[in-house]
């Protein structure tokens, strides 16, 4: 039976996946454009450029993870949705917010950091380690949001 609660769970899942993947898309787009700029001049750096421009893609994975977990736990994947109350639906919805919102902004800004790192590596390839650390620092907050979403979701009595 489709209850108002399950509709809210759908919405939460959509936000987690939609926002986080959008942020990643923007981030990978920016970093990818910077990488293409470098590759125009130095095609042999493809491996390094691919690595740096793929890092902002992780937010989308986190969003997808939370979104799918919601869909799984609420029985939507099995085709037997749980009869969730509106209250439970809201709880699921809010549990999805951290990974969605943080994923969107951190993916976008990580893309910018990755583009800056690509610029640094283009000039000094030996600095790839330091450049990656800077990009990974943005990742910390995406991981925190994933953790927050998972803990919040785990606290909901279904």
């Amino acid at each position: 039976m489709i209850t108002q609660g399950i509709v809210m769970a759908f919405l939460g899942s959509a936000i987690a996946i939609g926002l986080a993947c959008s942020g990643s898309g923007m981030g990978v787009g920016i970093a990818g454009a910077a990488a293409e700029g470098v590759l125009t001049e130095e095609p042999e750096k493809f491996g390094l450029m691919l690595f740096l421009s793929a890092i902002p893609g992780t937010q989308g994975i986190y969003g997808l993870l939370v979104g799918f977990w919601v869909l799984m736990k609420t029985g939507i994947f099995a085709g037997v949705p749980l009869p969730l109350t509106l209250n439970q639906g809201w709880q699921i919805f809010f549990a999805c917010i951290p990974v969605g919102v943080v994923g969107f902004f951190s993916g976008w800004y990580q893309g910018k950091t990755a583009a800056a790192a690509i610029g640094l590596v283009a000039r000094n390839p030996e600095e790839v380690g330091k450049a990656t650390v800077m990009v990974a620092m943005v990742e910390t907050y995406a991981v925190f949001s994933l953790l927050a979403s998972l803990l919040l979701f785990n606290g909901i009595n279904l």
Binding site: I30, V38, G119
Partner: peptide, 11 residues
């Protein structure tokens, strides 16, 4: 991003 990436290499 594209233009700056290209320029950083040329720098």
């Amino acid at each position: 991003a594209f233009a700056n990436g290209r320029i950083k290499k040329l720098e």
